[in-house]
């Protein structure tokens, strides 16, 4: 096995031993399950809580299946991304600080693979957690509300996954650039926010910015027409790959060997 795969396997093992491989998917699962359930039982919940006066009629428009999943995804985009970044912001910088990397980098391994193994692991975890959470959301939504056409679901999920990969690449890059994991995490969240804000600000004139990935994904879930889908996918994929290899290259360049 190549050094890259060994180091990648070590990342998974570390996530398992630190229970990150358990609690992180659980967070996504809870988000994915709770949103359809609370939306469905909102009326009963409000009545049980006694918050409504006697005789008041409470009616909410019945959301479509797509709208339910889009709102789940809204949770993933806020809480999910935050938790993912918090869980991994010390991944590379933590090793640099604790100097556990010294005895690894003194072996015949490439510095680039060392960083890449970490980045790929975060992407794997993101895909795993998101897949699990969305799977649960789709299941409960199908039971309570109805289904979303399969190909729409796949492309919507793929788009949001691409957004998560972009965030993972940002996190890796900022961990290479900053010595502090906290700083890397903060800047990652801030730049993800800026990307989203920027793309919605320029939505009219530049309908292909990578920051649109999550909002376009929600539109797809809700089966709304989307403009500039291909451009968004291409720019999103391009930026993710670009940032990832930029991070790997910058770390590799520090190698004295």
């Amino acid at each position: 096995m190549s050094a890259f795969w060994l180091m990648h396997a070590k990342e998974w093992k570390e996530s398992l031993r630190s229970y990150r491989l358990i609690w992180l998917p659980v967070v996504f699962l809870i988000l994915g399950i709770s949103q359809p359930l609370t939306m469905y039982y909102m009326e009963d919940l409000l009545q049980a809580a006694g918050g409504l006066p006697e005789g008041a009629v409470f009616s909410m428009p019945e959301p479509s299946a797509g709208e339910v999943i889009a709102s789940v995804q809204g949770q993933f985009n806020q809480i999910g991304v935050l938790v993912l970044v918090l869980a991994f912001m010390g991944q590379l910088s933590g090793e640099r600080k604790a100097q556990t990397d010294t005895m690894i980098l003194a072996r015949p391994v490439s510095w680039g693979s060392f960083a890449a193994a970490k980045g790929v692991h975060v992407m794997g975890m993101a895909a795993f957690c998101y897949g699990l959470g969305t799977g649960a959301a789709v299941y409960y939504t199908s039971v309570l509300y109805g289904t979303v056409p399969f190909h729409d679901a796949i492309s919507a999920a793929g788009l949001f996954l691409l957004w998560l990969l972009l965030v993972s690449s940002l996190l890796l890059l900022f961990q290479v650039l900053f010595a502090s994991g906290t700083a890397a995490g903060f800047v990652t969240i801030a730049s993800a926010l800026l990307l989203s804000l920027g793309s919605s600000f320029f939505a009219e004139r530049l309908p292909f910015l990578p920051g649109r990935l999550s909002s376009v994904s929600s539109q797809l879930w809700m089966q709304q027409p989307v403009e500039g889908l291909l451009g968004t996918v291409l720019s999103g994929a391009g930026l993710s790959i670009g940032l990832f290899f930029c991070a790997v290259y910058l770390f590799h360049r520090r190698s004295p060997a």
Partner: peptide, 29 residues
């Protein structure tokens, strides 16, 4: 690096590994 074994002044291990896991990981690298 393949010809050299190195011990830093303050060796830091992955403390979640067992001793033999660390050794095997190191050897496989």
């Amino acid at each position: 690096r393949r010809h050299i074994g190195f011990l830093p002044q303050f060796p830091q291990f992955y403390s979640w590994m067992t001793g033999s896991e660390y050794m095997i990981y190191a050897g496989r690298l």
